[in-house]
Amino acid sequence: MQLQTIVHTIPPLYNSESRVLLLGSIPSPKSREVGFFYGHPQNRFWRVLAAVLGEEVPVSIEDKRAMCLRHHVALWDTIAKCDIAGASDTSIRNAEPNDIGRLLRESKITRIFATGGKSAQLYCKLIEPKTGVPITQLPSTSPANAAWSLERLIEAYRVIL
């Protein structure tokens, strides 16, 4: 698969009361198509987050947005622009970071978690030197991460509470 330049177009989900930030790498083709985070139906992110927060799994984008804000959880991605083949994080080249500092200034975010290895790696390289806020890497909820069962993912994500 050929590299394609992708520009992040989904705005961050947060408000002034957000306390925890979950960062992916960059939206997948399916997420870009639906216009919201973790849009692929096989991605376990929404099932994991709902279980951790003690909520029903949200279906609509509005329900997903409301659940996150109700629990002071912000969502965005580490990368603003990059070259990538499909949804393959391992293919990412020429990554340019999102302005995470702005979210930190406009909210009460004190803890940041990466929803996968590439997000954590690029955050450490491109963003942490500017913000000084460390990141904790969580396992990917992608179906490609088959080594992690839904139950193990839920347990790992409980650290956000």
Rank of each mutant, 00 (worst) to 15 (best):
G86F: 09
G54N: 06
L75T: 01
E33H: 14
S31K: 03
R152K: 15
P139M: 12
A66V: 10
T115Y: 00
G24R: 01
V59W: 07
T115N: 06
R47Q: 13
G117V: 01
K125T: 08
P134I: 01
G101E: 01
C68M: 11
K30V: 13
F45D: 00
A144K: 13
G35I: 06
E17L: 15
S119W: 00
T110R: 15
T110F: 13
M1V: 13
R105N: 10
T115C: 15
R70Y: 04
L13E: 01
T110M: 09
T115A: 14
A50C: 08
T78V: 15
I127F: 01
L21G: 04
K130S: 08
F37K: 01
I127S: 00
N43G: 03
L21C: 10
L75C: 07
K30C: 06
S18Q: 03
L22V: 11
K64P: 03
L13H: 02
P143Y: 13
E56W: 01
P12I: 12
L53M: 13
D83Q: 13
E128D: 03
I92V: 15
P129Q: 10
P27T: 06
A74I: 03
Y123A: 05
P11T: 08
K108Q: 14
V159C: 13
P29V: 12
I61A: 08
H40W: 08
I154D: 04
K118M: 14
A51R: 06
G101V: 04
P129G: 09
I112H: 02
R102K: 14
K81N: 08
W76H: 12
P11E: 10
E151L: 09
T131A: 09
G132H: 13
I127V: 13
V52L: 11
E151S: 14
P12L: 14
M67V: 09
T78M: 08
T110Y: 11
R70W: 02
N15Q: 07
P11V: 10
T110G: 15
G39Q: 02
D63E: 15
G86I: 07
I100T: 10
S140P: 02
I61K: 09
A51S: 14
W46M: 05
F113H: 05
L138D: 00
I154Y: 02
V34W: 09
R158C: 12
T9L: 10
P58K: 08
P129S: 10
G24E: 02
V34I: 15
L21R: 04
M1P: 10
I61H: 09
P41N: 11
G54F: 05
S119H: 03
E128I: 02
K130I: 12
S88F: 07
E56L: 04
I26C: 00
A147W: 04
L122R: 00
H40P: 02
V7T: 15
A80V: 03
K64H: 08
K81R: 15
L104S: 03
L13T: 06
V7H: 11
I84F: 01
E151N: 12
C124K: 12
Q42D: 14
R158Y: 05
R47G: 07
L22M: 12
E56K: 11
A95V: 14
D89K: 05
V57H: 07
G86K: 09
T136Y: 09
L104I: 10
E155L: 14
L23I: 06
W76G: 00
E128C: 08
S25A: 15
